[in-house]
Amino acid sequence: MPMNNILSAVICSLLWLNLTVHANDGYKVGDIARDFRLKNVDGTMISLKSYPDAKGIIVIFTCNHCPYAKAYESRIIALHKNFAPQGYPVVAINPNDPAAYPEDSFENMVKRAKEKAYPFAYLVDETQEVAKAYGATKTPHVFLLKRNADTYEVAYIGAIDDNSENAQAVKEKYVEKAIEGLTKGTPYTTTTKAVGCSIKWKK
């Protein structure tokens, strides 16, 4: 009988642990980000290791169809142009199920990347595993990674800046501030929030 009690206590705590782990899905600032191997719009496979000289990576979950992603498109291009030469390239990842939005299909990603001459990698997360592992919930959703030799640590999670509607009216450039924080050691906000389109998960 006591054995049974112990057993149920163990099972209960395991179940509880499982629930808590589930509730905290995704990365927090300070976590080590996993690598991935995803197909780029040019057909090559890209992983974090594809950037041997990087000091960090600006991972942005984004897509074609979402109005917030569209509003940020040119700002994402500008981020890459400004920060790739400093060792912080943008890696854009589209996690959306193309069945929900045909506009987000790989073919349409290729088309959009060509039309706008994306200077950064635009990857498809077909299994949605990367978005799930990172804890991305919407587009656009930024995860700034800082390189420590062989690993990448999450340094910032959130929005690109504080005004999706109007780039001219931006007061806080969160991602720029965070990169500046990493390079110069200045303080920065590590987590922010912004309205975005929910990721369309496969059913």
């Binding site: 919930t137 919407k138 959703h141 929005a159 929030k193 912004a194 309205v195 975005g196 389109c197 929910s198 990721i199």
Partner: peptide, 11 residues
């Protein structure tokens, strides 16, 4: 964040 700490901003 003020509306709900659980809200990531997705709609």
């Amino acid at each position: 964040e003020a509306v709900d700490t659980q809200w990531t901003g997705a709609i």
